[in-house]
Design a protein around this nucleic acid. Structure first.
Lengths: 236, 236
DNA sequence: ACCTGAACACCGTTCAAGT
DNA sequence: ACCTGAACACCGTTCAAGT
């Protein structure tokens, strides 16, 4: 589709200086910087230095930094998002949503770009395929198109929230356990009996991965509202 | 608790120059800047200018910018987070979670600070009271402490995700409807039949507020996993 | 057509020095 | 004890000019 990105920078039919840099070079260099120095180091300036060009040059190949990150995430999605899908539509929804979540969870910098405007619309085929699976699964379970879109969006919010909160709280100290008291020390046990009872065990309880059970509960809860005609719900 | 913040900057027992600025002054000025110029304009430098002091001065009264924003959000929570709570524990969970969501949704800059590390632990009494309500509600419905914490965290992820995604996509064009085609124009109808069928209607369907139904479904889905002893579920 | 250096317009935070 | 100017160490993006 893009005539520039495929071939090396040989001269093309048109006039002008031949390109030193291509979209693919930029994405490759970006992955290298992230892998070597961590994603926090991926700035436009550093990336340009990595390629041996001026920072301004990059703006001839990508619209802006968000654009670069979305393309990068999409490239990784093409490689990672290929789950085996079961037959049961309810199961397909769960597996597809889990695949999306796990791909994002494995990409620490995903949080940076997850909420940019029009994110969904900028995705490539492998990511869209899983959106299709979820929407199709909901329809197969009896929901209308608008209910199916709502179901997808709710799962998306849940996934994004989990990724974002975890991404931010993972950084910092080694484990959540060796933190100073989680709730304020002067927590009024009369007003907050349960929180006081849990007390310092909160970080420990919160270290548990609640996503898989939460996802299943969310899918079942939403399908249950569609009507009794929804598909089989295995005993788990 | 904090001896400085309560009283105006009169001289205190100890030695040294009397303060020109207090934590309360800073929070008040921050609210003024946000209200007048929008929250994007709330920078450390502008806030200092508003107060007529140097930027460095603020660092004697707040730890850093995140600290300032959390205190600001907490102050608003004290004013907004006082819902009437019903008797039924399942209903209490829904009402409390809705109150948290609505307070955050009404604060456009909330997205900026929602995911900072230790956010929950830095909250004041009125916000903690709703956390307590949700955890207590889950326990009243038969869940263990760890299940109750999971339930709260899952609702929190859902809420945060909804707020963050909406916060970012609301900015920009007037409504989502007058956007150019949402999915890529060359979307393969054979591979993505449902997405292709929905097509340009996605933004319109996505404009619908799916949170309330989603929340109810999520709560019911999670309570259903706890066991048959869970509380009444009204017919709505 | 492609690339560049320099500039623009900022950030949050630190710190030695003043009062 | 409190406040300050100046500096530090950066950002992403634009643009006139070069090749």
């Amino acid at each position: 589709m893009d005539p520039v990105s495929a071939s090396p920078p040989t001269s093309r039919g048109r006039s002008g200086r031949p390109p030193l840099t291509s979209r693919d070079d930029i994405l490759r260099a970006a992955r290298q910087v992230i892998e070597r120095d961590g994603w926090e180091q991926l700035t436009v300036r550093r990336l340009a230095a990595e390629l041996g060009v001026g920072a301004a040059t990059l703006y001839h190949h990508v619209r802006d930094k968000d654009d670069l990150l979305i393309q990068l995430l999409d490239q990784q999605a093409d490689e990672a998002l290929r789950p085996d899908l079961p037959d049961d539509p309810r199961e397909r929804i769960v597996v597809a949503a889990t695949a999306i979540h796990d791909a994002l969870a494995a990409t620490p910098w995903a949080a940076e770009v997850l909420t940019v405007d029009g994110f969904l619309g900028r995705l490539g085929p492998s990511a869209l395929a899983l959106v299709e699976v979820i929407v199709a699964g909901a329809v197969a379970c009896g929901s209308s198109e608008s209910q199916a879109v709502d179901l997808f969006r709710n799962l998306w919010y849940f996934t994004v929230g989990e990724i974002l909160v975890r991404a931010r709280s993972r950084s910092g100290r080694a484990t959540a356990a060796d933190r100073d008291t989680f709730f304020p020390a002067d927590l009024d046990a009369a007003r907050f009996p349960h929180l006081a009872a849990i007390g310092d065990r909160w970080p420990e309880l919160a270290a548990h991965d609640s996503f898989p059970e939460g996802l299943a509960a969310f899918v079942d809860g939403q399908l249950a509202r569609i009507g009794p005609s929804h598909a089989s719900r295995p005993s788990r």
